[in-house]
Amino acid sequence: MNHSKWNVKLKIIWNYFLACLIAIIVMIPFLWMLSTSLKSKGALMQIPIEWIPQNPTLDSYRMVFSRFPFLRAILNSFFITCSYTVVTILSASMAAFAFTKIQFPYGDTVFKLYLASMMIPTQVTMIPLFVIMNNLGLINTYPSVILPSLFRAFAVFMLVQQMRGIPNDYIEAAELDGAGLFRIYRTVVLPLSGSAIATLTITTFMESWNDYLWPLLMLNDKNRMTLTLALNSLNGQYGTEYNILMAGSLLSMIPIVVIYALAQKYFKEGLMAGGVKG
């Protein structure tokens, strides 16, 4: 009996050991980022390496803001990401409502086209889309990054699956009460799709916040750049001043990590729904 008790204890210790080992592997680059961001330029190239900065300073954080319109980039990122997410949800939920609750002619065909479009990787449409945006004179404007959210096939697909589960009786009952379609959409269907919409909101927010390639093609004016582009541009200008780069990287991560900690559940559901990855 005593023997097996020890066995159980050893097993728990072993499990914690493994869990901590992986945590160390995951966290070391982040701790290195934090440590570097608190160093002065001179301390960067110290050999042997200073694991913990001997003279910690917040200068790098000050320099991020003085050498680049970084505050502007933060605001741009928030504006673009929020608009992108709201447009995605509105457009996709309206389409999903029409597909599932209004039996309109050729609806199934259109839906199949939507599904087929998911097969085309974004790299294929990127060049013509660049040309279209250029011809519309939208390069270096916020709409060039926000407008593509009008059509997000995956979001429509996910919401169609959710809305199919809403009984048609509810719709008919509301219709008998004299509610118009927009009222049914707003007061019956949207609330009943709450969890799917929450999941979609969070995954879309994360994707848009971290997006790189499309904004890179669209925005090259410093004052319009999102955070990822700001970091990219800092990297181009101050490629060796890692204290500044690490301070900027750390700042860019904070909002997403906070949202994750608050809404873990929806991240998990997003993961299951179809592999939305950053």
Binding site: Q103, F104, F182
Partner: peptide, 27 residues
Amino acid sequence: ALKNAIPFMLPSFLGMIVFSFLPIIIS
């Protein structure tokens, strides 16, 4: 039904034409 569906489909359908269908053909 078609008339009812159009306002709901419009943003998404226009988006598909401009940001997916046309670019694919042009590409």
